[in-house]
Design a protein around this nucleic acid. Structure first.
Length: 152
DNA sequence: GCCAACGTTGGC
DNA sequence: GCCAACGTTGGC
């Protein structure tokens, strides 16, 4: 059991979108970074906890809690020449990118990035490190616990 | 829109 | 395999 922070642009998929989906479940697609992909492929397990983070928006921060509800499978958008996520080098035989299903468990108050930076228990969070851009980053159990407490 | 930081590409 | 050039991310 591990914990993750996953970034989504609310213009694309917000926590409200996830909670409004059937079974509150959404397909996580479009990851085009190898490190993030490898986390999905090699480490994520069904049941892992997810901090749902809104990025590239007026108020970036954690907007909800979620969990991983599938094992990895090929990301369909890599094969779709009409998709902005199309990857001409990917083939059905040797897919390069993967998806995973994420189920929203709770929309929370927004925990803004600016507030996260003021909390000593969170100072080592990967997402808060200078230059950190990864869309999927690991979260420790202690960090998860501290955040859940803040969101109550 | 700016720009720092990081990732990827491709010539050599 | 190096590294310059370019592209992307994402907060501000």
């Amino acid at each position: 059991m591990q914990y993750w922070l996953m970034k989504s642009e609310p213009d694309e998929v917000s926590i409200d979108d996830v909670m409004a989906s059937p079974k509150q479940t959404t397909v996580w697609f479009g990851v085009r970074n190898y490190q993030a992909r490898n986390f999905m492929r090699d480490q994520m397990q069904v049941g892992d906890g997810v901090l749902f983070y809104h990025s590239s928006c007026p108020e970036p921060g954690i907007a909800g809690l979620a969990q991983i509800v599938s094992t990895p499978y090929p990301d369909a958008s890599q094969f779709d020449s009409n998709s902005k996520y199309y990857d001409p080098k990917a083939t059905q035989e040797t897919p390069r990118w993967i998806s995973i299903d994420v189920q929203g468990t709770q929309k929370t108050r927004l925990l803004p990035l600016a507030e996260m930076r003021t909390i000593p228990a969170l100072e080592d969070m990967v997402v808060l490190q200078k230059g950190s851009r990864l869309s999927i980053t690991p979260v420790t159990a202690a960090q998860w616990k501290a955040i859940v407490k803040l969101l109550k």
